[in-house]
């Protein structure tokens, strides 16, 4: 990868060995196990296994609870990605406007990044706890029969809020960095060309921000898929009645209840392919770099 280097024979292997070993043991081996197991069916006592090709997948696709988890995941990730990107962009644009610098706002808005998803879930759960939460009370006083423990929609709203809240700071930082990398003179040129602030935003700033936005979209989807496990587990446990059971939560839940190893493995494999697809899209896109 570079012209100048060293010629030692053994040393490079020693240097790279720990990384490769850990990757092999904790990544490739389990991943291949997952793929392998997804083709197997085990009998109830775990004594006999049979190779069944794609039967586990077929069963999965016919399983209404899996379909439900899929829909939940789509709704959940769409809502969280849209909300957190939208709000973060709005805030970043306002912060970027500040003549005296965006510094203080940045400090005040970025730290939720450091709050663990599970803790974020607990904070919002406490606010919306039907019997003692302050916001739950507010909703009741407005005539909403708020109860995320029984009402699936309420539960979904609650996890969406918590997940969005946690993600705003991350998106904000990236949008702000993106905005600040747009040369000021470009905006000035547009102003001289006669574009109003709104028009400048949509015809100049936003197109130049689109690589950042796309990057964030993919990262957010991956975030919602995986990192929000803590939020869901802490706030709703996937309930009520599986109303907030995402794909990852289902893998975890099915696996923990034991039994269907093959089915659980098949779920893992499908998730893996989803992430690989997203990563591939990401790379294609970054490669082309859209506007530059």
């Amino acid at each position: 990868m570079r012209k100048v280097g060293f010629n030692n024979k053994l040393l490079p292997y020693l240097l790279i060995a720990p990384q490769i070993a850990i990757t092999a043991i904790f990544f490739y081996w389990p991943a291949s196990q997952a793929v392998w197991q997804s083709f197997l069916i085990q009998d109830a006592f775990g004594t006999r296994t049979e190779f069944v090709w794609f039967e586990n997948y077929e069963v999965l696709f016919k399983d209404p609870t899996y379909f439900n988890a899929f829909i939940v995941t789509v709704v959940f990730s769409t809502a969280v990605a849209a909300l957190s990107l939208g709000i973060a962009l709005l805030l970043a644009v306002q912060a970027d406007k500040q003549i005296h610098g965006s510094g203080p706002y940045k400090t005040l808005l970025m730290w939720p990044y450091a709050v663990a998803p599970a803790v974020a879930g607990v904070l919002w759960l406490f606010l919306f706890q039907p019997s003692l939460g302050v916001l739950a009370k507010l909703l009741r006083s407005m005539g909403v029969d708020w109860n995320p423990l029984l009402n699936g929609n309420h539960a979904m709203i609650l996890v969406i809020i918590a997940a969005t809240w946690k993600q705003i700071s991350y998106n904000f930082l990236f949008f702000l960095a993106g905005l600040q990398s747009i040369p000021k003179s470009l905006i000035e040129a547009a102003a001289i060309d006669g574009a109003s602030p709104m028009r400048r935003f949509w015809t100049v700033i936003f197109p130049l921000l689109s690589p950042t936005a796309f990057f964030l979209l993919v990262v957010n989807v991956v975030y919602v898929f995986f990192d929000t496990f803590g939020i869901i587990d802490a706030v709703t446990h996937g309930g009520p009645a599986k109303a907030t059971e995402t794909l990852v939560f289902k893998v975890f839940q099915d696996g923990r209840l034991g039994g269907d190893l093959g089915g659980s493995a098949a779920q893992s494999v499908i998730l893996m392919f989803m992430v690989i697809a997203l990563t591939a899209i990401q790379f294609k896109y970054i490669e082309r770099k859209v506007h530059y």
């Binding site: 003179s185 470009l186 000035e188 001289i192 100049v204 130049l208 859209v290 506007h291």
Partner: peptide, 11 residues
């Protein structure tokens, strides 16, 4: 106005 860095809209 013609700017030092030209400020052409890259997209």
């Amino acid at each position: 106005m013609v700017f030092q860095n030209y400020a052409l809209y890259p997209h």
